[in-house]
Amino acid sequence: MHRLTILPLVLLAACGGKRDGMPESFRDTDTPIYSNAVLDPAELEGTWTQAATFAPEAGGCKPGTVRFGRPDGGAIPVTADLCLGGKSQKISGRAAMPVPGRLVPESVGSAAVADGIGQAWWIVWADVDMRTLVIGTPSGEMGFILNRDGRLPADRLAAAREILEWNGYDLERLQTF
């Protein structure tokens, strides 16, 4: 009888953690995540280089880039080839901007998207001169740092890490390029 009482508890404990087929989260989703509400979308225009990403282990892929076009009618053209979660992911199309600091990709090719690179991007921080962006997702499935001009200086990397930690990200899994 004692074994019958403990067995359900052991089975319940085994259900925790990452489930097969489910994306891995790099943040504590019980921690609130915030987006930059004062961001001017026109300041995003241009090419950004990926300076860091979250991954389950070191390696996996090379840093990528994001190209934002000129905002038009509540959306912004975006083309990205990024290393996310240890895998290369691409997107090309438009991203709606329902509120400042949030980009919602409208499509990848001809298919609607809702996960991976296609989920909503929350710009959680941009430095005052718009040289560095920190982007995350409420799911925590991805998070990355973009920089306009090559290698990310130590002061902006430290600020970006602080913001990611404040938004619940596990900094031990942040890889810089």
Score class of each variant (00 low, 15 high):
14 A>Q: 13
32 P>T: 08
52 A>K: 00
19 R>I: 15
147 N>R: 11
150 G>I: 05
56 P>N: 11
109 G>P: 09
139 S>T: 13
62 K>Y: 11
147 N>G: 11
134 V>G: 02
35 S>A: 12
71 P>M: 08
1 M>C: 12
66 V>Q: 03
7 L>D: 13
125 W>E: 06
148 R>D: 01
30 D>Q: 10
117 I>L: 06
13 A>T: 12
36 N>D: 13
19 R>Y: 14
146 L>H: 04
94 R>K: 14
5 T>P: 08
64 G>D: 04
76 I>H: 01
31 T>N: 07
128 V>M: 07
40 D>F: 04
77 P>D: 05
86 G>E: 02
167 N>W: 03
11 L>C: 08
19 R>Q: 13
7 L>S: 11
117 I>N: 02
176 T>S: 05
86 G>C: 01
85 G>E: 03
127 D>V: 01
73 G>S: 07
81 D>F: 03
15 C>V: 13
164 L>V: 04
23 P>M: 06
78 V>P: 06
109 G>H: 11
58 A>L: 14
25 S>I: 01
129 D>M: 06
2 H>L: 14
6 I>L: 14
118 G>P: 00
145 I>Q: 01
171 L>W: 02
57 E>F: 08
97 M>L: 15
11 L>A: 12
162 E>H: 15
143 G>C: 05
127 D>M: 00
32 P>N: 06
92 S>P: 07
160 A>Y: 03
128 V>N: 08
56 P>M: 14
42 A>Q: 12
149 D>L: 08
127 D>N: 08
160 A>R: 05
21 G>F: 09
171 L>V: 01
29 T>I: 10
73 G>Y: 06
10 V>R: 15
74 G>T: 02
114 A>G: 15
86 G>R: 00
120 A>K: 02
90 K>N: 10
69 G>M: 06
25 S>C: 04
101 G>T: 09
104 V>Q: 15
14 A>N: 10
52 A>V: 00
167 N>H: 08
122 W>A: 05
58 A>P: 11
78 V>G: 06
29 T>N: 07
148 R>P: 01
5 T>W: 15
63 P>L: 05
162 E>N: 09
71 P>G: 08
163 I>M: 11
168 G>K: 06
116 G>C: 06
130 M>A: 04
124 V>K: 04
2 H>Q: 13
173 R>G: 00
23 P>W: 05
77 P>E: 05
161 R>Y: 04
129 D>P: 01
6 I>V: 14
149 D>G: 07
21 G>Y: 10
22 M>H: 09
119 Q>F: 04
119 Q>E: 15
162 E>Q: 11
43 E>H: 09
71 P>Y: 07
170 D>G: 03
131 R>K: 10
120 A>R: 04
53 T>N: 11
17 G>C: 12
162 E>W: 12
105 P>T: 15
65 T>S: 13
164 L>C: 02
89 Q>R: 10
54 F>A: 00
104 V>R: 15
93 G>Y: 07
127 D>C: 02
64 G>C: 06
139 S>V: 02
69 G>Q: 06
121 W>Q: 05
169 Y>F: 13
27 R>Q: 00
23 P>V: 05
109 G>V: 09
173 R>E: 02
51 A>W: 00
39 L>M: 06
111 A>C: 09
166 W>C: 10
144 F>W: 10
161 R>E: 13
135 I>G: 01
176 T>L: 03
174 L>F: 01
72 D>W: 14
159 A>C: 08
82 L>V: 00
154 A>Y: 08
120 A>C: 03
